[in-house]
Computed example of a mutant assay.
Amino acid sequence: MTETQAPAEEVTTARRTLLEARDLHVEFTSRGRRARAVDGVNLAVGEGEIVALVGESGCGKTTLARTLLGLEKPTSGTVRYGGEPLKYTSRALKEYRRQVQLVLQDPMGSLNPRHTVYEAVAEGPRIHGLPDEADVVNTALGRAGLRPPERFLLRYPHELSGGQRQRVVIAGALALDPKVLIADEPVASLDASVRGEILALLLRLRDELGLSALVVTHDLGLAWNIADRVAVMYLGRVVESGPVEQVLTAPRHPYTQALLSVLPESPERVVLTGEPPDPTRIPGGCRFHARCQVLASGKAAEAGVDGRCRNEPLNILPAATGAQAACYYAEATG
């Protein structure tokens, strides 16, 4: 196998694809060194679908999310919405961000402490010149579970609980009636007792409004509870993807197996050595091979693929809906 990219496959699914990355690359240059933060990603989010993007810190998932939002421009490849390539003019991006909204992990950081709840939720509708502002704000707060809305309109962020603040952030996104939410670690800063409420809210929004979501997280337990499909990212690439139940009950990639092993119900803990490699120095062969427990244990040698793991780059995974893994050992052992 070589690292050359075959034409991106069309996603065959009953759901219409709304948001898509096609052979996406995002590079940053600092002090003459080129960092491949996103290094060839194909990913699709269907209508009414929740996709979890999972990986360690530094794997490129936040850069990918920012690129899907139009906040970063890809070095190569395309972001497509509704089948059309994203345009980067101010007017096109403004319209696009009515359809695709961001929900950040830190509500205190994303809410202005001097603005009331009403002002926070009304900001987007004002920017976009939407009519009936008060009705839009009340409806958005109600959908986000802040009922009755009148109780919250004049409160400030410091007067709310963490869960209420996150609901205000979600209401601010809902006020523009988007089709897709991109949620970056949406419950990471919340108490365990509140996390389930916010996840249940996202599921309810999907069921009642047909909303799609890409949920960026390091937590496979969260992915299990909320996602229809999961994409596992390592060092700028998706290394395994598929229906969440299939991937998380029978993971094929050693990296996914290691991430799952930290969950309480896991029978065996896999301790990964070292940190993810520097994206300015991506290793040859499988990019995970230096930390791979299967290669270290000799199992890859028994399957006759250890040389390929160390030296032969893997193909980039397509945006397919079925389970798939970029791993020579998984291919060899079926």
Rank of each mutant, 00 (worst) to 15 (best):
V168E: 10
T280F: 10
V238A: 02
R165P: 12
G55D: 00
E119A: 15
L24I: 05
P125W: 10
L174Q: 07
I226H: 05
V121P: 14
L176A: 15
A319W: 01
P7E: 10
P107G: 06
T333V: 15
L111Y: 01
L153G: 11
E123H: 15
T12Y: 02
P74V: 05
T273Q: 10
C327K: 02
R91E: 15
V54N: 02
A258V: 09
W224H: 06
L53Q: 03
G163I: 01
G124Q: 11
D23C: 08
L111W: 00
W224S: 04
V271K: 02
E265F: 08
E20H: 12
Q101H: 07
G285F: 09
M1I: 06
G82Y: 13
A35Y: 15
G285V: 09
Q101S: 05
R308A: 15
S30A: 14
F28I: 02
C292I: 09
G145C: 04
E56L: 00
G221V: 06
E159I: 00
V121I: 13
Y81V: 06
V305K: 05
I226S: 05
E208F: 11
W224N: 01
Y96A: 01
P85R: 11
L295R: 12
R155V: 00
Y234N: 00
E265V: 12
N315H: 12
G109I: 01
T62M: 02
D135Q: 14
A213L: 07
A300H: 07
P277W: 12
H25V: 15
G129A: 12
T256C: 08
A192N: 14
L235M: 07
V41F: 05
N138G: 14
K61Q: 03
P254Q: 13
G129L: 09
P279D: 00
L43M: 04
N42D: 14
I226W: 04
V271W: 00
S212K: 06
A92Q: 08
R91C: 00
R291H: 13
R22G: 09
C309M: 09
L220A: 01
R34Q: 14
V168S: 08
G284W: 06
P267H: 03
R195Y: 11
S261M: 04
R16Q: 15
R167L: 10
A326E: 00
L199R: 04
A188P: 01
T17Q: 06
A200M: 08
E84N: 07
T280M: 13
P251W: 10
V180R: 08
I282A: 13
L248I: 08
E197H: 14
C286L: 09
E197V: 08
H128V: 14
L317G: 06
E119W: 00
H115T: 01
A37L: 05
A21F: 04
A6H: 09
L190T: 10
V121D: 12
D184R: 13
V137N: 11
E240S: 13
R308Y: 07
